[in-house]
């Protein structure tokens, strides 16, 4: 090979190697917006709790629901985040209620301050809105060696038990520095991109991540409704359920606590 060619090749390799080092390192994301899809396995919920052979009404309801709705009930949420705040809210598009899953605490909005460790949420039971202000509860996460790729982000798995008995599996990425996630899940070394309650038919999964400056206006949360607290909300949900279906189905009570 001619010397000139050799030098040219060497410089070329040097350039692209430098390029790899400087230009191709994955970028750390500190603020942006993530769109999550929340999926509830409605059929499984019906099968496990409404499959009472001697209850005609439940049987009827199950058949009617299945005829009009798909197995997985999907809703979309946006999570705005920066280094200290995060705001989780349903995506601003019209979607009709399915008269079952959407009745209680299905379209929660949660505003979290990771510096003061306080959260402010707006939750609904039937047509009534409730505003809850409470401190962020500490979640004891257990780190595991399992990993998964979500939207091109390399995620680690961590497990936890919340509310004494609810098992949670979360995948988080250290590439996004915010320690937040959907609903009021928080506390991992990075952003939660996927979280599931395996025994409770719900999973949230990130569908789109946009790294951008989030204007303060996006964090401007003015919740509507009645000032309340978690116990009162749960009681309201329980009484609504009892009067409508005859018993307080735990699944719905759980969604008021998330």
């Amino acid at each position: 090979m001619k010397p000139k060619k050799v030098i040219k090749l060497f410089l070329f390799f040097l350039l692209i190697s430098k390029g790899y080092l400087y230009g191709q390192l994955p970028a750390i994301i500190t603020k942006g917006k993530i769109t999550f899809e929340r999926r509830v396995n409605a059929y499984a919920l019906l099968r496990d709790h409404f499959d009472l052979p001697d209850n005609q009404r439940f049987q009827q309801f199950t058949i009617q629901y299945k005829a009009a709705n798909p197995q997985l009930h999907k809703t979309s949420f946006d999570l705005y985040f920066n280094d200290s705040l995060s705001f989780y809210t349903p995506t601003k598009t019209e979607h009709s209620s399915d008269q079952f899953i959407d009745v209680i605490a299905s379209g929660n909005s949660v505003f979290t301050n990771l510096h003061t460790l306080q959260k402010l949420s707006e939750k609904s039971v039937a047509d009534n809105q409730y505003i809850i202000k409470e401190p962020l509860g500490k979640i004891k996460w257990r780190y595991t060696n399992d990993t998964r790729e979500i939207l091109g982000f390399h995620c680690h798995r961590a497990n936890a038990i919340i509310l004494d008995s609810v098992y949670v599996v979360a995948f988080y990425t250290d590439q996004i520095t915010s320690k937040s996630g959907p609903e009021s899940f928080w506390g991992l070394p990075g952003m939660i991109l996927q979280i599931a309650l395996p025994g409770n038919y719900i999973v949230w999964e990130a569908k789109r991540v946009i790294a951008e400056n989030v204007p303060g206006a996006d964090f401007d949360f003015k919740p509507k409704g009645v000032q309340s607290n978690p116990e009162a909300l749960e009681k309201a949900a329980a009484s609504f359920l009892t009067s409508n279906i005859g018993f307080a189905l735990n699944w719905f009570l759980l969604t008021t606590r998330l």
């Binding site: 004891k140 996460w141 257990r142």
Partner: peptide, 8 residues
């Protein structure tokens, strides 16, 4: 002992 995340 049990891989719980203490702090980060």
């Amino acid at each position: 002992k049990d891989s719980f995340i203490v702090t980060d």
